[in-house]
Design a binder for these strands. Structure first.
Ligand SMILES: NC(=O)c1ccc[n+]([C@@H]2O[C@H](COP(=O)([O-])OP(=O)(O)OC[C@H]3O[C@@H](n4cnc5c(N)ncnc54)[C@H](O)[C@@H]3O)[C@@H](O)[C@H]2O)c1
Ligand SMILES: NC(=O)c1ccc[n+]([C@@H]2O[C@H](COP(=O)([O-])OP(=O)(O)OC[C@H]3O[C@@H](n4cnc5c(N)ncnc54)[C@H](O)[C@@H]3O)[C@@H](O)[C@H]2O)c1
Lengths: 234, 234
DNA sequence: GAACGTTTGTGCACGGTTTCACAAGACGTC
DNA sequence: GACGTCTTGTGAAACCGTGCACAAACGTTC
């Protein structure tokens, strides 16, 4: 029962939702909610109840029929599955607007991530302190990564330097990268890459706006069909 | 031929990739590349060539067999489909670290989005100028939105205020929202919502790290299986 | 301890997405 | 203008994710 051996592979779509459940469950725990049904959790997460149950079933059979899930236990299980039972130090490459905002962001360390280091290529930035951490030169990246056993890197350099940053991170031993630059980066097989691209998100929204306009033009008296996306509901 | 009538619905997965193609094609155009094959574009975008062709086929038959696609024409077609033939003014709610970084971000207006306004609830912030725009009080949101005919809003408030911000944006007439706060927001049907959640992205990476560690523990001499995600290649 | 209401866990069908594989079409060459 | 090479555009198959529907299990009440 304790420590299951057969590591089920959890679908990527589920992995992407677990952090959302985790945040909600943590909030509920903080306001002394001890039990929660898939229906309630689904409402709070803006998804379907069956989806919640299926997602949670990948962790194991941790609910009680007729009752629901114990919030605290579920928090623990999700944290365990996501590898959040210990803190993850993160190294930020690029100490510009974005890098500084990230380093100074409280919600960052809030849930298990700490800023283990910041590096920049600009000597003017090196030595400055952001978010309580001193900026080091990018040439020290390997040392910074090794010293704190860092496995996650964040790229906050201009797009043109993103591939260099990725190469440097990989060379330093980092195995997961979160890329804020609007550039596709190439990494060796076995390295995980996540990206956050503001322009892409805005352009997706622009597309939907555009469609609304076109639909309205087509038949000027029909109300817009409407299109709800991720995170939206009723 | 000009202005097709039957507005095909483009799959959401394709819509999310078009901005990436667009950026790459624009870059290629800037360095005087006039023609490109699905294979080349696929390499640059880090995806499968068949996927590129299928994606582009939703726009129409704009390639030439045996030759490829004309870069400039494709740029125009994608821009048209995404509704980027004109600029979109955006209103930012919350002028903290994030809101200021966004307002001051060049790559923002770079591709068709301009900061049409910034509002905050804090009187200390009101009146300050960020990114060349004066911060107004949130009570003026409706006026700001109406004055510039804004349809896209960005939420950069703390999570606790995100729902209020969303409500205010919807009441002001905004129909698309990009949410940076780590909170699920509820909006009426017909409003599009996109989200950027740093913590979720990091937790997904932590999960993969965790799996690597578990896999290595399971059989200490076998090399890690590795898991490449969005935007990764080779 | 049986009956009842509640909620989980999951089989199954469906729809969307990805990838393969190949016919159709364009261009260049002789 | 016939042939060879190249690349698109797209059926069709495989895969993944979603949501319904319901049996199984739990707690409560009488
Ligand atoms: N500012 C925003 O709101 C925002 C939003 C979305 C995306 N982004 C993206 O985030 C990235 C950073 O944006 P920013 O506004 O912070 O830019 P910035 O110019 O303020 O900062 C970039 C920093 O990276 C450093 N740098 C450059 N090359 C480097 C290298 N090879 N190694 C290490 N450091 C290097 C620079 O010295 C600079 O300090 C950009 O790619 C941008 O497109 C920014
Ligand atoms: N800073 C980061 O790097 C970062 C990264 C990812 C996500 N985020 C998220 O972005 C959001 C903003 O982060 P931040 O670091 O800028 O926080 P911040 O505290 O620096 O800024 C928040 C701003 O919102 C304003 N505000 C509060 N309630 C408001 C309301 N009802 N209407 C209008 N304005 C209101 C505040 O006055 C403040 O100026 C947060 O939800 C945070 O979780 C921040």
């Amino acid at each position: 029962m304790a420590g299951q051996r057969t590591r089920r592979r959890i679908p990527e779509a589920t992995v992407a939702r677990l952090p959302v459940y985790l945040r909600i469950l943590s909030e509920q725990f903080d306001i002394d909610v001890t039990k929660i049904s898939s229906e309630e959790l689904a409402d709070l997460a803006g998804v379907n109840a069956a989806k919640v149950r299926k997602d949670l079933s990948y962790l194991g059979s941790y609910g009680t029929r007729g009752v629901g899930y114990e919030v605290e236990f579920l928090v623990y299980q999700i944290r365990r599955e996501l590898g959040l039972t210990h803190d993850w130090p993160v190294v930020i490459v690029g100490s510009g607007n974005m890098g500084q905002a990230l380093a100074g962001y409280n919600g960052f360390g809030d849930r298990g991530f700490t800023v283990g280091g910041i590096v920049d290529i600009d000597d003017a930035k090196v030595g400055t302190v952001v978010g309580g951490v001193r900026v080091r030169h990018v040439s020290e990246l390997t040392r910074v990564v090794a010293a704190q056993n860092i496995s996650i890197g964040v790229i906050a350099t201009p797009g043109i330097a993103a591939q260099d940053a990725a190469d440097a991170l990989v060379a330093a031993g980092v195995t997961s990268i979160l890329n804020f630059a609007p550039t596709v980066i190439n990494v060796p097989h076995g390295i995980s890459v996540g990206k956050v691209d503001l322009a892409v998100e805005l352009q997706i929204l622009a597309y939907h706006e555009q469609r609304r306009i076109n639909a309205a033009k087509g038949s000027s008296l029909v109300s817009v069909p409407g299109e709800s996306r991720r995170g939206a509901s009723a």
